[in-house]
Design a protein around this nucleic acid. Sequence first.
DNA 1: ACTATAGTTAGCCAAATGGCTAATTATCCT
DNA 2: AGGATAATTAGCCATTTGGCTAACTATAGT
Lengths: 96, 96
Amino acid sequence: MSDVYRALSDPTRRTIIRLLRQRDRSAGELADHFPVTKPTMSKHFTVLKEADLIRGRRTGTTIIYSLNVSVLEDALCGLLDVFRITPKSKPTKEES
Amino acid sequence: MSDVYRALSDPTRRTIIRLLRQRDRSAGELADHFPVTKPTMSKHFTVLKEADLIRGRRTGTTIIYSLNVSVLEDALCGLLDVFRITPKSKPTKEES
DNA sequence: ACTATAGTTAGCCAAATGGCTAATTATCCT
DNA sequence: AGGATAATTAGCCATTTGGCTAACTATAGT
């Protein structure tokens, strides 16, 4: 779980997540969006995979990454919960 | 703004925030909750201050830290927005 | 003025992080 | 089998990070 925070702490990885929010993309397609090499991107993918935020499936020679939306939602909502923040709705019943 | 992500990426700092969610606490009082030295805690305070997440005011020899709730809320809600997550409410109108 | 107490700053160190190039793996095509 | 393409793994490097001890600052009390 703490892997998620680590994964989210890097701007490149946050952008990867945002890109995958729109649709699945191959490793190379994702790499095209950043001024870093493919091996570096591969490392970012690994970090995101370790946090279970993304998954890759092979199709021929390309690997298609897709976002694990539920894990992302759980992580972010968990974050809100930890800090007892209520995004838009009514004020909280006051914490413990 | 990116300072906020950095600040949130460390477990000690997340706990500091949680403690300050309950009530204001002195530097020493906060330090008592962790198995690290006071100078180390001081560094964490600095990181949190740089992200404008906490503020300290001096009272005699002690420094009382308090959470900047609005900044924390903004940061987390911003995070939700970036990823187009809707915490509890109705499903989104679908993104761009 | 001296001492005690609460914190921070300075300076160091080992481990982690994010980047690169070179080498390797995997798949497809002829 | 051999070559081309997509991606990862291996290994290296500089910077950042989180920790420590020692030294300093600031305030209070006597």
